[in-house]
Amino acid sequence: MNQQPDLSPAEVYERYLSRAIADPWTRVLLELALPKPGERVLDIACGTGSVARQVAPMVGISGQVLALDINSEMLEVGRAQPSPAGASILWQEGDATRLELPGDAFDLVLCQQGFQFFPDRVASGREMRRVLRDGGRAVISVWQSLSRHPLYEELFTATARVLDAPISDVDVAFSLSNPEELYTLLSEAGFHYIEITPRSLFIRMPEPERFVQFSILGAATSVPAFASMDAIERFALVEKVRAKTHAIIQGFRDGDSLAFSMETNIAIAK
């Protein structure tokens, strides 16, 4: 990717984080979700649409896919991507804690790495349950703990120190790592059958020299500590964090990529 000074956080997310991380993890999510032709699917916290685009061919032209996110810029970037075969995708801005959707409307609700960001997780879980038809299922993935992701642990530890902030302000993506907590949340939301499965995947990320830049800019799509910064503030942060983490990041370098494992918990709730 050519460096572009006007590249937005949502564009960085799609070109860098979505293609290297979200796309391969979507395949894992859908292997467990088992979408069927003709099903009605809701992709909550869809981001730029990795899950929506991959599930559309699986449910086919007789199916329906609604991609919902609270971030209008992510939706705009998602709409701009090539349309997949199968079901057409309807893109809609919306709040996961208060879905403006009818009950019993979907066969399958998918949420990849979004649940941990919701301000009221139980309310979001109840909304997922409400919009599912009887016998429907929700499949939700959340990252395992930051300690299981040493590259990101170094990145966010250094970032928190530069910002003089608690690490909880910057590592939101890893904030729902306890499978028992996830189980309890879904149980309180009204799901009766809940199975949580751990999964691990080896990731390769291009352009190692821009890992800090793209990770922080991509996180500005969802993490308030980064979203509240202007471009100059984020640039200054990137330069400081890059200097502090350069040697450690090089330890994950494999040729022209960074290579590392990521681990997630995937819940199937019915």
Rank of each mutant, 00 (worst) to 15 (best):
M1A: 09
Q3E: 13
L7F: 10
E11Q: 15
V12F: 07
V12C: 11
Y13D: 06
Y16V: 00
Y16L: 00
Y16M: 03
L17D: 12
L17R: 11
S18I: 02
D23K: 12
D23G: 05
P24N: 13
W25G: 03
R27E: 15
L32P: 09
P35K: 05
K36W: 14
P37K: 12
E39Y: 09
V41T: 10
D43P: 03
I44E: 08
A45M: 02
A45N: 03
T48Q: 06
V51G: 01
V51N: 03
A52C: 08
A56M: 10
V59W: 13
G60N: 05
G60P: 06
I61G: 03
I61L: 05
S62V: 02
G63I: 05
L68M: 08
D69T: 05
I70E: 06
I70C: 04
E73N: 10
M74R: 13
M74A: 12
L75K: 14
A80C: 10
Q81F: 11
Q81S: 11
P82S: 07
G86H: 14
G86Q: 14
S88G: 13
I89W: 11
L90T: 15
W91S: 03
G94H: 13
G94R: 12
L101I: 13
D104F: 07
L110K: 10
L110T: 12
L110C: 07
C111L: 01
Q113A: 09
F115N: 02
F115C: 01
Q116R: 05
F118L: 00
D120A: 08
A123F: 04
S124G: 15
R130V: 00
V131N: 06
R133P: 04
R137N: 02
R137C: 03
V142I: 06
V142A: 08
V142R: 08
Q144M: 07
S147Y: 11
L155R: 14
F156K: 06
A158F: 08
R161L: 13
V162G: 06
I167F: 02
D169I: 00
V170A: 05
V172Y: 11
L176F: 09
S177N: 13
N178H: 12
E181S: 09
Y183L: 07
T184G: 04
S187R: 15
A189E: 13
G190K: 15
H192Y: 08
R204S: 14
M205A: 08
E207G: 00
R210D: 05
F211E: 00
V212F: 08
Q213D: 08
I216Y: 02
G218L: 00
A219G: 02
T221K: 06
V223Y: 10
F226A: 00
M229N: 05
F235Q: 05
L237Y: 11
V241P: 10
K244M: 12
T245Y: 09
H246W: 12
A247H: 11
I248P: 00
Q250N: 15
G251M: 01
F252P: 03
D254R: 12
G255D: 14
G255A: 11
F260K: 01
T264V: 10
